[in-house]
Nucleic acid binder design. Structure first.
Length: 589
RNA sequence: GCCUCCGUAGCUCAAUGGAUAGAGCAACGGCCUUCUAAGCCGCAGGUUGAAGGUUCGAGUCCUUCCGGGGGCGCCA
């Protein structure tokens, strides 16, 4: 916000230190000043003092740091745009001119509107692959984490200046798919999925197939036979596969629509199969993969041996079964290359759960050994899984799952009830919209607000709690800005410099708005949705506090103009953060 | 056995190596003839698993240990 002022101060500090023979730090690290009613930036001289001490000067670091801070303060005087400077406990605090800063922050948020916080186009292209559900199976709340993390990371990267390709990679093929078809042919021929909740139905039939297989002595053999027919391209099996697979894909799209998730590029495991065989053969020819099929074994890559490493670092990647069918490691080799063939990528990100960490290390290392020159550009972005209370892993087989459909239904139902209670006068159409916005937001927020390295535990009570640190709180703050502004007939005043002594709550709010662009940048740097949720919440909280402490419409005319603009700016910042999170921004609640 | 992640308030979680470790939930007490109370205010609550180390400065980095999760040759 005050880059020019900062730059000029930094230069002055540097030349002062140089003139007085005090060691220069490599860079001056600026951060905002904590616990102050005003704001500005702060740097410290501990490092400088420590450097002096190290070079033989007899100084106590904290004392000397404070001494330098005072010297620098004296040398700086009072630059333009700066209200005052203080030296305290080794820190140099530079306070901005409150009036100018406030106006600047509010103006840029309003002027840039939905682009407030957007980074400049950096000319780089990144692919984010996420979701990757398996067809012929259910979708439970555990599948939500990759969907939300991938979607929002893609949003963040896009907003911060990247060109982003959103990719999905469907698991549409394999033994489990055949198992589903085997059961379908035996017990459900001619049936078609229901109008709604297709995915649930597919999942139920999958569970049934697992059960049936356990009691059917011929089942295993029949499935293998069917698999072979699929491999051979048998028209009947292929047709059944195509049809049933599409049911699943349609079901997934229902859910993606509810979550407002879109993809630019779709890959299927079934597409990788044929080329994977050739890829494996090339690795065998290059003496990277070892073919043990002659002895009834699989085709493997002994990574540690090839790298001359300890035997338990990369271990062994299995590419092909002894019956010459390929495994997903082989498909990943093909897919990794395919992505770069399809797009000129600077980075290729895989949003896949943490249990696959070793797998991706193996795949990427194998590609590197095979001479692929893109391994610097691929990145596995892992996330921890979602458990049920008592550290119970979600498993379709064990029946320990909460279906996504059920969660969405419950959350929207709950949202409807709360809406009726809080705002009985709302008309039905508006209430339906609010219900959807709040229900979906409430589901998404908790997972996005948790660091992806941490296991999430799903429980209904928390999932349906709309109070406090949750999406509805943030949505409500936006709605408040909206309803406040709607009460004003006249257009918003032009740029206003506040002339009144700013209240503490105004200061906090302005500061948070000013930080939004750097939060986006940091989130893109670290791939952290958490930074966005936290900031959205902080903004909402600061606004709610402001709302309760500072009258706007009833304020004196000279205060009112600025506050109206502040409300507008705050609403904009909150809305922008919610949009990045792909959480609906309702106009009323 | 090897690798990896996690451990912060009663519970769930935050915290660019920086000043006084913060929120929510739960408990308790207040605030709606005043811009929507899905809100606000107050009150509590901590040896950041333990011990060393690096650093001017460590919840954060390193080492070891303790406790928990996960991964390790023909599932994905």
């Amino acid at each position: 916000m005050f880059d020019q002022e900062k730059e000029s101060i930094e230069q002055k500090i540097r030349s002062y230190l140089a003139e007085n023979d005090i060691p220069l730090p490599d860079e001056l690290k600026w951060s905002s000043i904590p616990f102050s009613g005003e704001w500005g930036i702060s740097t410290s001289f501990f490092q400088t003092a420590a450097d002096e001490a190290r070079s033989g000067k007899q100084v106590k670091v904290p004392v000397r740091a404070q001494e330098i801070a005072e010297l620098v303060k004296a040398a700086l005087g009072t630059p333009e745009g700066i209200s005052h400077i203080e030296a305290v406990r080794g820190y140099l605090n530079v306070y901005y001119n409150t009036q100018q800063f406030s106006r600047k922050v509010v103006d840029s948020a309003i002027q840039q509107a939905q682009d407030f916080g957007r980074g400049a186009d950096n000319g780089k292209t990144v692919m984010v692959e996420f979701s990757q559900p398996n067809t012929h199976k259910a979708m439970h709340v555990g599948h939500m984490r990759t969907m939300l993390l991938g979607d929002v990371v893609a949003n963040i990267l896009s907003f911060s200046g990247y060109t982003v390709i959103r990719a999905n990679y469907f698991g549409d093929f394999g033994r489990d798919v055949i198992k589903w078809m085997w059961n379908f042919q035996k017990r459900h021929t001619g049936e078609t999925p229901p109008e709604v909740n297709v995915t649930r139905w597919m999942g139920d039939l999958y569970a049934e197939s697992t059960q049936m297989l356990e009691t059917d002595p011929d089942g295993e053999k029949e499935i293998l036979e069917m698999f072979a027919r699929w491999e051979a391209g048998d028209p009947e099996v292929r047709q059944l596969w195509k049809e049933t697979r599409q049911w699943s894909l349609d079901g997934f799209n229902e859910i993606y629509d509810l979550f407002n998730i879109r993809f630019d590029q779709i890959y299927y495991e079934s597409q990788m199969e044929v080329r994977a065989k050739g890829e494996v053969q090339k690795l065998i020819d290059a003496n990277i993969a070892i073919d043990e099929r002659a002895n009834g074994g699989p085709v493997i890559v002994k990574l540690d041996e090839l790298l001359g490493l300890d035997n338990e670092t990369y271990r062994v990647l299995v590419l092909m079964r002894s019956d010459s069918t390929t495994l997903y490691g082989a498909w990943d080799l093909v897919l990794a290359k395919q992505k770069f063939a399809d797009y000129d990528l600077d980075t290729s990100i895989y949003v896949v759960d943490v249990r696959q960490t070793l797998h991706f290390k193996q795949v990427f290392k194998t590609l590197e050994l095979a001479g692929w020159d893109k391994t610097e550009k691929v990145l596995h972005l892992p996330y921890e899984i979602v458990n049920l209370p008592g550290n119970v892993t979600m498993s379709s087989r064990e029946g320990t799952i909460v279906l996504l459909e059920d969660l969405i239904n419950e959350a929207t139902q709950r949202a409807y009830e709360v809406s009726q209670e809080r705002n009985p006068d709302l008309d039905e159409d508006a209430r339906q919209e609010v219900t959807q916005a709040v229900g979906i937001g409430a589901i998404k927020y908790p997972l996005l607000a948790r660091d992806s390295t941490k296991v999430a535990t799903f429980d209904w009570e928390t999932a349906l709690d709309f109070n406090g640190h949750a999406a509805p709180y943030i949505q409500y703050a936006y709605v408040r800005t909206n309803s406040l502004l709607k009460r004003v007939d006249a257009p918003l005043p032009e740029s206003v410099t506040p002339r009144h002594e700013l209240e503490e709550k105004e200061v906090q709010l302005i500061e948070l708005i000013s930080k939004w662009p750097e939060v986006v940048e940091r989130a893109a740097q670290d791939y952290k949705t958490l930074y966005i949720t936290n900031h959205a919440y902080d903004l909402a909280k600061a606004f709610n506090e402001f709302y309760n402490h500072c009258p706007v419409l009833k304020a004196e005319p000279e205060v009112r103009g600025f506050r109206l603009r502040l409300v507008k700016a705050a609403g904009q910042a909150v809305a922008n953060s919610l949009r990045l999170l792909n959480i609906p921004v309702p106009e009323v609640m």
